[in-house]
């Protein structure tokens, strides 16, 4: 969250086999965001590692009114950083471990 002001975490334990993850995103540093947003609300959503893209989820969050268009890049980056980390961890651990 240090550079986007947003934090994305796993909302449920990753079982390393399912391509769909439950993620949770919230604003940790409101000063880093440009547009209007809700400060103390966490948004939980599912993300499919094989079919979804961070940009698409960010766009839907903007469309749903959670964030302003000017912050969609920061939202997408936060999701992408977390997804990249999860993929790296999965590569290290065999499925179902």
């Amino acid at each position: 969250a240090e550079d986007t002001g947003l934090r994305v975490e796993l909302a449920e334990e990753d079982d390393y086999s399912n391509s769909s993850l439950a993620l949770r995103l919230w604003v940790e540093d409101p000063k880093k965001l440009k547009g209007k947003h809700k400060d103390n609300e966490a948004i939980e959503f599912s993300f499919n590692l094989e079919t979804d893209t961070p940009e698409e989820v960010a766009y839907e969050m903007v469309k749903s009114g959670f964030f302003h268009e000017s912050d969609s890049k920061a939202v997408a980056k936060s999701i992408r950083d977390r997804v990249t980390l999860i993929k790296k961890i999965r590569e290290k651990k065999p499925a179902g471990c």
């Binding site: 540093d29 400060d39 103390n40 599912s46 989820v57």
Partner: peptide, 27 residues
């Protein structure tokens, strides 16, 4: 719970709930 709101967008479901006090960093 009444504090949780579900929003659908393009077939995706967003569940909105308050961030636990413990997770909010002093801003």
């Amino acid at each position: 719970s009444s504090l949780t709101q579900v929003v659908h967008s393009a077939g995706r479901r967003f569940i909105v709930s308050p961030v636990p006090e413990s997770r909010l960093r002093e801003s």
